[in-house]
Simulated scan of single mutants.
Amino acid sequence: MDRAAEAEYRREYLEFTADCLTEAGFPSELMPNGSVKTAHGAQYDEFRQASQECDQEFGPLPSAAPASDEELSKFYDLQVESYECLVEHGHNPMPPPSRETYIAQFHTDQAWDAYLPAQQGQPYIDDPACPRPQPEDIEW
């Protein structure tokens, strides 16, 4: 499966998951960063059960092959474009690291993201004028 097909399948899977959890009583939405945000209150056991039932209905999310350095380099360019857009729209995101640092840290908890605020403790920046790049946006 190519990266565009993987990304489309992932998006469909996450949309299904959000809809399934909402139907199960846990309001959920697909976030711009590709995660599912769910309001579960303190109903952890019930939420876990609903998540398992949704997984059984659609199946597990298949894992994608790790991104190559070439793919990460192209994705870095897209992230830098997003950073520049956010700055142009008056936001204060964390400046990008070097390309080499970005690639080296991509799979760690220190990975840079254009939507990270420069000031710690602030929420991720969300501006519809600067859409979050997706892996399928890489031009080959």
Score class of each variant (00 low, 15 high):
2 D>T: 08
2 D>V: 09
3 R>N: 05
4 A>N: 07
5 A>L: 14
8 E>S: 11
12 E>H: 11
14 L>K: 15
15 E>R: 13
18 A>Y: 03
20 C>Q: 09
22 T>K: 00
22 T>P: 00
23 E>L: 01
24 A>K: 06
24 A>M: 00
25 G>I: 00
25 G>P: 00
26 F>D: 02
26 F>S: 03
26 F>N: 02
27 P>I: 00
27 P>D: 07
27 P>S: 02
29 E>G: 02
29 E>W: 02
30 L>T: 12
31 M>R: 03
32 P>H: 13
32 P>G: 12
33 N>V: 05
34 G>C: 02
34 G>S: 10
35 S>D: 13
37 K>D: 11
39 A>F: 05
39 A>L: 04
40 H>S: 04
41 G>H: 01
41 G>P: 05
41 G>Y: 04
42 A>F: 08
44 Y>L: 03
44 Y>C: 03
45 D>P: 02
47 F>V: 07
48 R>I: 15
50 A>W: 01
50 A>Q: 10
50 A>N: 10
51 S>G: 00
51 S>D: 07
52 Q>Y: 08
53 E>W: 09
55 D>A: 09
55 D>Q: 10
56 Q>I: 11
56 Q>N: 15
56 Q>G: 08
58 F>N: 12
61 L>G: 02
61 L>A: 11
63 S>W: 12
64 A>M: 04
64 A>G: 05
66 P>A: 12
66 P>R: 15
67 A>S: 05
68 S>W: 03
68 S>D: 03
71 E>L: 01
73 S>Y: 11
74 K>Q: 12
75 F>I: 08
76 Y>P: 01
76 Y>I: 01
76 Y>C: 01
77 D>R: 02
78 L>W: 07
80 V>T: 07
80 V>D: 06
80 V>P: 00
80 V>W: 09
81 E>V: 08
82 S>G: 11
85 C>I: 02
86 L>V: 10
88 E>D: 14
89 H>R: 11
89 H>P: 12
91 H>L: 05
91 H>I: 07
91 H>N: 10
91 H>M: 13
92 N>E: 06
93 P>R: 06
94 M>Q: 13
95 P>Q: 00
95 P>R: 08
97 P>I: 06
97 P>H: 14
97 P>A: 12
98 S>P: 01
101 T>A: 10
101 T>M: 08
103 I>L: 11
104 A>N: 14
105 Q>I: 11
105 Q>T: 15
106 F>D: 07
108 T>I: 14
108 T>Q: 14
109 D>Q: 15
110 Q>R: 12
110 Q>M: 13
111 A>T: 15
111 A>C: 14
111 A>P: 09
111 A>M: 12
111 A>F: 14
113 D>F: 14
113 D>R: 12
114 A>V: 10
115 Y>V: 05
115 Y>R: 15
116 L>E: 12
117 P>G: 01
118 A>H: 04
119 Q>P: 00
120 Q>C: 03
121 G>W: 01
123 P>G: 15
124 Y>E: 07
124 Y>N: 07
125 I>V: 05
125 I>K: 00
125 I>N: 01
127 D>E: 14
127 D>A: 07
127 D>Y: 10
128 P>S: 13
129 A>Y: 08
129 A>F: 07
130 C>P: 07
132 R>N: 10
133 P>K: 04
135 P>G: 03
135 P>S: 09
135 P>D: 04
135 P>L: 06
136 E>W: 11
136 E>T: 01
136 E>L: 01
138 I>T: 03
139 E>M: 00
140 W>T: 07
140 W>G: 06
